[in-house]
Amino acid sequence: MSDTRVLVLVGSLRAGSVNRQVAETAAAVAPEGVELTIFEGLGNLPFYNEDVDVPGATIAGVDELRAAAAEADALLLVTPEYNGTVPAVLKNAIDWLSRPYGAGAVKDKPVAVISASPSPNAAKWAHDDTRKALGVAGGNVLAAELSIGGTIQKFGDQHPRENAEVAQQVGAVVAALVDASKALVSA
């Protein structure tokens, strides 16, 4: 059994996306005793609609997302940048996790954001917007953050976990999440 469970949400649905690979890197560098799970169902979530999000409702995909987030000790969101902001699939997941208002599955949980992009901007706008949305949703957004730019030149045909500097930086974000979740437990 793991000491700390981290749920990872990836804002790109493309199987070969660099953001997916960064999430895989986080799983590869997670310390012993840390279970890092990449949630696979973001593409199946309906768009948030308060008319269907009522007590007792069963909503395919949403129930699984909320349960996974509720069971996690911390959340890591890995995002690309689509048209200068957060991909809709990731923002939609945050919206579902923020409800019910004031008691959603992200409330008071340690959360961190990593962004990656081929551009030198490193998806910083999406990164900042994701952090903002998580904070409004009630998450405890950590100062630990990472934006990776120039991914095509930086990685080429390699997986990000093969880049020692990036693997170390991703590992530092995961370690900060673990420390924050352990601090909550001991508080």
Score class of each variant (00 low, 15 high):
residue 2 S to R: 14
residue 2 S to V: 15
residue 6 V to S: 06
residue 7 L to P: 07
residue 8 V to Y: 09
residue 13 L to Q: 10
residue 18 V to M: 12
residue 19 N to Y: 04
residue 20 R to D: 02
residue 20 R to G: 14
residue 20 R to T: 11
residue 21 Q to D: 13
residue 26 A to Y: 04
residue 41 G to H: 14
residue 46 P to E: 01
residue 51 D to K: 08
residue 52 V to T: 12
residue 56 G to S: 00
residue 59 I to Q: 06
residue 63 D to G: 08
residue 63 D to A: 08
residue 63 D to E: 10
residue 68 A to M: 01
residue 68 A to F: 02
residue 69 A to G: 00
residue 72 A to C: 10
residue 75 L to M: 13
residue 77 L to M: 13
residue 78 V to K: 10
residue 82 Y to P: 04
residue 83 N to F: 09
residue 85 T to C: 12
residue 85 T to A: 14
residue 88 A to N: 11
residue 94 I to D: 08
residue 96 W to K: 07
residue 99 R to C: 06
residue 100 P to G: 01
residue 100 P to C: 00
residue 106 V to Y: 00
residue 112 A to F: 04
residue 114 I to Y: 11
residue 118 P to H: 02
residue 118 P to E: 10
residue 124 K to C: 14
residue 124 K to I: 14
residue 125 W to T: 15
residue 126 A to K: 05
residue 127 H to A: 11
residue 129 D to Q: 15
residue 129 D to G: 13
residue 129 D to N: 14
residue 132 K to M: 15
residue 133 A to F: 12
residue 134 L to D: 07
residue 134 L to H: 07
residue 134 L to N: 07
residue 134 L to I: 10
residue 137 A to Q: 03
residue 137 A to E: 00
residue 138 G to W: 10
residue 141 V to W: 08
residue 142 L to W: 06
residue 143 A to S: 15
residue 143 A to G: 12
residue 144 A to N: 02
residue 145 E to D: 14
residue 146 L to T: 11
residue 148 I to K: 10
residue 152 I to A: 14
residue 152 I to W: 11
residue 155 F to Q: 08
residue 156 G to R: 09
residue 162 E to S: 13
residue 162 E to Q: 15
residue 162 E to C: 04
residue 165 E to I: 04
residue 165 E to K: 10
residue 167 A to S: 10
residue 169 Q to D: 12
residue 175 A to D: 13
residue 175 A to W: 01
residue 177 L to C: 00
residue 179 D to H: 05
residue 179 D to M: 07
residue 180 A to I: 06
residue 183 A to I: 09
residue 183 A to T: 11
residue 184 L to A: 11
residue 186 S to W: 14
